[in-house]
Design a binder for these strands. Structure first.
Lengths: 221, 221
DNA sequence: CAATCAACGATTATCGATAATAATTGACAC
DNA sequence: GTGTCAATTATTATCGATAATCGTTGATTG
């Protein structure tokens, strides 16, 4: 590792944060799981301090929760919170999709590639890979909006969504879900911002987990 | 401080984080300002570790930025980023305002109180107090949406907005700005979600700082 | 005077130790 | 068997020290 390369200057705390985050997203550390500082430190052969720093970041991201003197757990998101999360996500993604109608031609082919990857994962009944490609599909759209703040916020919601939706799905279910993304591509390609906005909102809200679907909403969506 | 009271169990790092955040918001630590760990530790009569933890949280919040081995600065938000921020904020607040049309009667009087506080600050040419009451006004609406995720995200944007808008304004300017909030109350009281949505979006976008107003937008707002 | 380099001081990142708090375990009484 | 209490262990939160990195300053050279 050359010290002239900025990429090599990744602090231990960042590495620990990223690895814990990855495990949480992949379901290896499910909600409720205890995160014990000294054990994590031993695993990473480091002292406690960088671990504490990593946990502070993860907590600020909303991925874990801690109580004073009682340590950290992977955060469990209630059904109500998940419902709220999907509603906000629908607002952000519909706006992003609306803006993405103005993006250039490469967007469409990139989205098609992402659907292919989703279908590949579906054929292999690989829910984790599917979730990853599904996220990538949506991320491409949000990136195409050109709004970095939007992307940052979307990423935050995405992480929180994925910790709670590590559920194995049938191959058929995954294939249908992959197919449902084609309507988003068509909407963006139509160049009609308002229509794209509505299609994206419908897509997000209709694809939320059942557990986030149980509350009765009072206002029109 | 009784140890039986959970409120007393506030870690040093949290206290440091909160105080630094408050100073940043009030403009006492303006964008670009250096945050030196050992100096902050000396000021708070503590060791370096809680300071580092506090800074990790502030960075994850997007309020400060650090480079490896080079320390922390209050983050400077570019004009382009501020523009993007206001656009996202417009989306979130318009949705919140739409949802708030279903809230009960106490909302309206609370909002009126917030306008009064704004006007009081305007008469005293107290820009900092004005900004605080302005934020409170909008926070009341977002809280009334009943969506906690929305509130968390809005708070994030609010903090970032306030670090970049610590500009003294004339008394007349502040009074006009305070007055402009009445249309939001009227819109919410109308009970019409769509109209409230539009009015809120217009309000946010028309009240952004000039520096966030210079880019030409391609898509229709 | 400008450029270069070495020395020094400032600061960051992590270490290992310590104090405080919480959880667990075992002994004892009823 | 249940409840209580004390001792022990586990864990968190912070301390002070140390190593590594960076920025500044002063000396030297052309």
């Amino acid at each position: 590792m050359s010290s002239a390369n900025p990429l090599s200057r990744v602090s231990l705390s960042q590495q620990i944060r990223d690895q814990l985050l990855d495990r949480i997203i992949r379901g290896e550390l499910p909600p409720g799981n205890r995160l014990v500082e000294m054990k994590i430190a031993a695993e990473f052969s480091t002292s406690q301090a960088p671990v504490r720093e990593a946990l502070r970041e993860l907590e600020t991201m909303g991925v874990i929760e801690t109580l004073p003197n009682k340590g950290a757990r992977v955060r469990t998101i209630t059904n109500e919170e998940l419902r709220q999360l999907y509603e906000v996500r629908a607002q952000l993604e519909s706006y992003a999709t609306q803006l993405a109608t103005a993006a250039g031609a490469p967007l469409k082919s990139r989205l098609k590639e992402a659907i292919k990857a989703m279908k590949r994962a579906a054929r292999e009944s690989d829910s984790t890979a599917f979730a990853s490609h599904n996220s990538a599909f949506h991320r491409i759209i949000v990136e195409a909006s050109g709004n970095k703040i939007l992307l940052d916020m979307w990423e935050t919601l995405n992480v929180q969504t994925r910790t709670m939706t590590n559920v194995a799905r049938s191959r058929r279910n995954l294939m249908e879900l992959a197919d449902s993304h084609q309507t988003l591509i068509d909407a963006i390609a139509s160049g009609d911002p308002d229509m794209a906005n509505r299609v994206a909102k419908d897509h997000v809200l209709s694809n939320r987990p059942k557990s986030a679907d149980t509350s009765i909403k009072q206002s029109a969506s």
